[in-house]
Design a protein around this nucleic acid. Structure first.
Lengths: 131, 131
DNA sequence: ATAGGTGCAAACGGTTTGCCGAAAT
DNA sequence: ATTTCGGCAAACCGTTTGCACCTAT
């Protein structure tokens, strides 16, 4: 089955230590420091494998590239609508509403994603300076 | 300022009546029935203009194309992780937590997106049949 | 030995852009 | 008359894929 390769190990270790919800490209840059020949295609292949295994979450964004997020604890995200920066928020919303939503939609639900959207401190400062 | 063109009017009217959170391509197909020469590029240009005006929301997905959603009432989404189908959920979550999240993240927040993820009835049935 | 994984380069799909002509003000 | 808008086709960018080689099992 799934083999333990240097590429996979390196990527997992980077995902574990990264706090920035990196893009595939960011991860690739970091991987290259340890495995100078590793291709971007391999990063993508690993990311989609890990995603199917449930080891990571893919966060689609309107800022081009997807962000990747290792699944460790339950948490939500604050996403900057200007630059795409993502900050974690501890999980503090009960999933009490789940059965209500299931009744409403007919879906079988297994994950709630709560996404706050607004300006991160950086972009807020820049926006003020420009206007 | 913003001119009132046939293309813009048609697109807005389609967005208002569509209940399916259409992709740009779906919208284009429908627009073509009324304006046979309208280009896909125009649909994209209008969508991004409308998005900046705050008239619509862009919903990025991991299923390729973005979905577009007219902003009328506050609601959230149930999104099928298999086929990407989106169903509306009435807003029932207080925004009490906002200031707490702002303190935590330093963001200035203006929107909460709550996204339930799971299998829509269709995909659940298919999944059962295959396993 | 043999799946399964990887590198490379080419293909892909959704979206954006430059250019010029058309249409709304 | 002016200036925004739209059509077309080409470019773009993130991601995926086919192929031949490699490597963990």
């Amino acid at each position: 089955m799934t083999r333990q390769t240097k590429q996979r190990a390196t990527l997992m270790s980077l995902l574990r230590t990264s706090k920035q919800h990196p893009t595939a490209e960011m991860l690739h840059v970091d991987v290259l420091r340890e495995l100078p020949n590793c291709s971007l295609a391999t990063v993508y292949r690993l990311l989609s494998a890990l995603s199917e295994e449930g080891a990571i979450r893919t966060i689609p964004t309107e800022h081009g590239a997807n962000r990747y997020d290792i699944v460790e604890d339950d948490h939500h995200h604050a996403i900057c609508t200007h630059c795409g920066q993502i900050t974690d928020i501890p999980d503090m919303v009960s999933d009490q509403a789940r059965s209500e939503v299931e009744r409403w939609t007919g879906f079988t639900l297994n994950e709630l994603r709560l996404e706050w959207r607004g300006l991160c401190p950086n972009c807020r400062t820049k926006a003020h300076q420009q206007n």
